[in-house]
Design a protein around this nucleic acid. Structure first.
Lengths: 140, 140
DNA sequence: GTCAGTGCAAACCCTTTGCAGAAAG
DNA sequence: CTTTCTGCAAAGGGTTTGCACTGAC
């Protein structure tokens, strides 16, 4: 199911509508890339990929769109690198390895990690999400 | 044990030396603030606090020093906010609540959370650290 | 036709860097 | 004295914003 596939693009349009997002050309373009498979991309990477195809999408729109998708739950923001945000097209419950040397993110099998006894939250607050990041590096 | 206390500052000097860090005036100044208690501070906050006292420390030195302290294991970097890094003066094993509305970090009792079965790492890598962040917000 | 979305470029903010002068040992 | 550190200001890099134009419905 390639991003340029017509049928695939129609699925994307439906998915955006379902999330309450107006499916503009640019948003479909970006979504088609992100949703092609489970992956972690920075805004920069999305911008680079989207602009290998036409129509072109501006940097501002890529940032706006990724922010919108995150807000609507279509992607998940992953904050592991002080320099940039990653957007994860896999929104199901899972955690990450972060390879410090390469800056690469990898999913951790959700079954392999479990939080035991979620601690009681500060009064008047609710949990929005739990992020587990295992920072790894190459052996010497 | 106030940061301006002479005896306290001597302890700081020893602690820096033990970590292999030359105890310059500015570094001791910064360390005295950070190590006064377990806390989470951004570079900006450190800069603001250090400059309420004399001698003044420049922005460049604050950044350099915090980076150096992190590298030497004197503080721990906490990456939860894409906009800035927090430095945690508590280097023991523990995790964090991150209050999205206020940008405030709180420690989680280490006993309250446990990772079950650390997953097998990608080949040729070793774990450098495990970060658990529970993102919370105020109830509506 | 109306309102939301897009593009461009400039602005922003945290962080890093280059280099000359100052401090540590 | 030599080497490391500090301060200043400028540069850097990801992200956001203001505003006029374009597209969606």
């Amino acid at each position: 199911m390639r991003p340029e596939n017509q049928q695939y693009r129609e699925q994307i349009v439906e998915r955006l509508k379902a999330a309450g997002v107006t499916p503009t050309q640019q948003r479909v373009e970006i979504a088609a890339i992100l949703f092609a498979r489970d992956q972690h991309m920075s805004a920069d990477q999305v911008l680079a990929v989207v602009n290998t195809a036409s129509p072109r999408v501006s940097k501002a729109t890529v940032y706006n769109t990724l922010g919108l998708f995150a807000e609507k739950g279509l992607v998940r923001e992953v904050i592991v690198d002080p320099a940039k945000v990653f957007y994860d097209s896999n929104t199901s419950n899972h955690h990450h390895f972060y390879h410090a040397d390469t800056g690469h993110l990898t999913d951790i099998d959700p079954a392999a990690i479990q939080i035991q006894a979620l601690p009681s939250l500060p009064e008047g607050t609710i949990a929005e999400g739990v992020d587990v990041i295992i920072r790894i590096r190459d052996v010497d």
